[in-house]
Computed example of a mutant assay.
Amino acid sequence: MIPYSHSREHNWLEPYEPIDVLKPAAADVWIVDGPEIEFGLGWLKVPFTTRMTVVRLHGGDLVLHSPVRHTAALQTAVEALGPIRYLIAPNSLHYWWLPDWKARLPSATVLAVPGLQKGAKRPVIVDMELTGQETPWPEEIDMQVVSGDVLTEAAFFHRASRTLILTDLIENFEPKRIHGWFYRALMKIGGVIDPDGKAPFDMRLSFFRHQKPLRSAVRRMINWQPERVIISHGRWYEADGVKELKRAFRWVL
C-alpha cells in the first residue's frame, strides 16, 4: 500500500463545506472538515474526505485527533478555544498532516499507534505510543486499541459528551457526494456507502485472524453507550450511536 498523498485539483468527493473551519459537534467537541486526500493502492488512487476532531479537556487543553491540513487561520481559530497540547495519529494511516502541526507546535505531545514512526512515509516524531486501554486523561477519555493484519487503530470515547471518535473502522460515504460512476461503484463494492457504512471490505478481511479481540473491542465500545460517533470519512452519526455501532459491526458481532 502507498501512503496518503495530496489529491488532484479535481475533487472526486464533494467536500463537507465549509472546510478548514471549526464546527461544534458536542460540548467541548468540535470537528474540522478538511480537503480531499488520496490513498494509493498500486495503480489505483482512491479519494477520501478528511475530518479532524478537537476535544477540550477539563483544564482547557486541546487534543487534536487526526489533524487535517494545517493553515494559519485554522490554527488561530483552534487556539482561540485553548492551548493545543496533544496531537494524535489514531491509526496507521492517519498521520499525513500531523508533522505540519508539530512543526508549528513543537511543545505539543504527539501520540500515535504502535509502529507508526517506523512505517510512516513522512517523518513523525512520536512522544507516546497508544497501547492498552488507558489514555493520558483517564478521567475524561477512554481508549480501545484495535489491531488487524494491516491496520492498528485507537478508538476514543469522550465521556462527558458521550462521543466515540473513530477513523477507518467505519467509513460512510454519501452516494450524492461521490462524483463519477467508477468511484461510486468501488465504494459500493467496498461496503462503505451511506446509510450502511462500515469498515471497507478489504479491512474486514484483514481482521479475519483477529475476530475474537475485535469482537471484544466492539462490545466495549457499545458498553460505553455513545450518543454520537464521529468518523473521518463520510457522514458521521450525530445520534443513535449504539444502534449505528451494532449495525456497522454486525459482520463481527
Results as ranks from 00 to 15, higher is better:
Met1Ala: 12
Met1His: 11
Met1Gln: 11
His6Leu: 14
His6Phe: 10
Pro15Ala: 03
Pro15Cys: 10
Tyr16Ala: 09
Asp20Gly: 06
Asp20Gln: 15
Val21Tyr: 07
Leu22Trp: 03
Lys23Glu: 15
Ala25Ser: 13
Ala27Trp: 09
Asp28Glu: 14
Trp30Pro: 01
Trp30Tyr: 15
Ile31Trp: 05
Val32Cys: 03
Asp33Met: 04
Glu36Met: 13
Phe39Glu: 10
Gly40Glu: 14
Val46Glu: 09
Val46Thr: 13
Phe48Gly: 04
Phe48Ser: 11
Thr49Asn: 15
Thr50Trp: 07
Arg51Val: 03
Arg51Ser: 02
Val55Met: 14
Val55Arg: 03
Arg56Ala: 09
His58Gly: 13
Gly59Leu: 09
Val63Asp: 00
Leu64Pro: 00
Thr71Asp: 00
Ala72Met: 00
Ala73Leu: 00
Ala73Thr: 00
Leu74Ser: 00
Thr76Val: 10
Val78Tyr: 00
Glu79Asn: 08
Glu79Ser: 14
Glu79Tyr: 05
Pro83Leu: 11
Ile84Gly: 00
Ile84Gln: 01
Arg85Pro: 02
Ala89Phe: 01
Ala89Thr: 06
Asn91Val: 06
Tyr95Phe: 13
Tyr95His: 09
Trp97Met: 00
Arg104Asp: 07
Val110Ile: 10
Leu111Gly: 00
Leu111Pro: 00
Val113Glu: 02
Pro114Val: 08
Gly115Ile: 14
Gly115Leu: 12
Leu116Asn: 01
Leu116Gly: 01
Gly119Leu: 11
Ala120Asp: 02
Lys121Ser: 13
Ile125Leu: 11
Ile125Asp: 14
Met128Thr: 12
Glu129Arg: 05
Thr131His: 07
Gly132Phe: 05
Gln133Ile: 08
Glu134Thr: 14
Thr135Met: 04
Pro136Val: 03
Glu140Lys: 05
Glu140Leu: 08
Ile141Phe: 08
Asp142Cys: 12
Asp142Ala: 12
Met143Phe: 03
Met143Arg: 05
Val146Pro: 04
Ser147Asp: 08
Ser147Tyr: 04
Asp149Thr: 11
Asp149Tyr: 12
Val150Tyr: 12
Ala154Met: 05
Ala155Tyr: 04
Ala155Gln: 06
Phe157Gln: 02
His158Asp: 10
His158Met: 09
Ser161Met: 07
Ile165Trp: 01
Leu166Gln: 00
Asp168Met: 05
Asp168Trp: 02
Glu171Val: 13
Phe173His: 15
Glu174Val: 14
Arg177Phe: 05
Arg177Lys: 15
His179Ile: 11
Phe182Cys: 10
Tyr183Glu: 12
Ala185Val: 13
Met187Phe: 15
Lys188Ile: 04
Gly190Ile: 04
Gly191Asp: 04
Val192Ala: 01
Val192Gly: 00
Val192Tyr: 02
Asp194Lys: 11
Gly197Val: 01
Gly197Phe: 04
Gly197Ala: 06
Pro200Ser: 11
Phe201Pro: 05
Phe201Leu: 15
Phe201Lys: 15
Asp202Met: 14
Met203Gly: 15
Ser206His: 05
Ser206Cys: 08
Phe207His: 06
Phe208His: 13
His210Glu: 11
Gln211Gly: 07
Arg215Gly: 05
Arg215Val: 07
Arg220Met: 10
Met221Ser: 04
Ile222Thr: 08
Ile222Glu: 05
Pro226Arg: 03
Pro226Glu: 03
Ile231Met: 01
Trp236Ile: 06
Tyr237Asn: 04
Tyr237Arg: 06
Glu238Ile: 08
Gly241Ala: 10
Glu244Arg: 15
Arg247Gly: 06
Arg247Pro: 04
Ala248Cys: 08
Phe249His: 06
Arg250Phe: 10
Val252Gln: 09
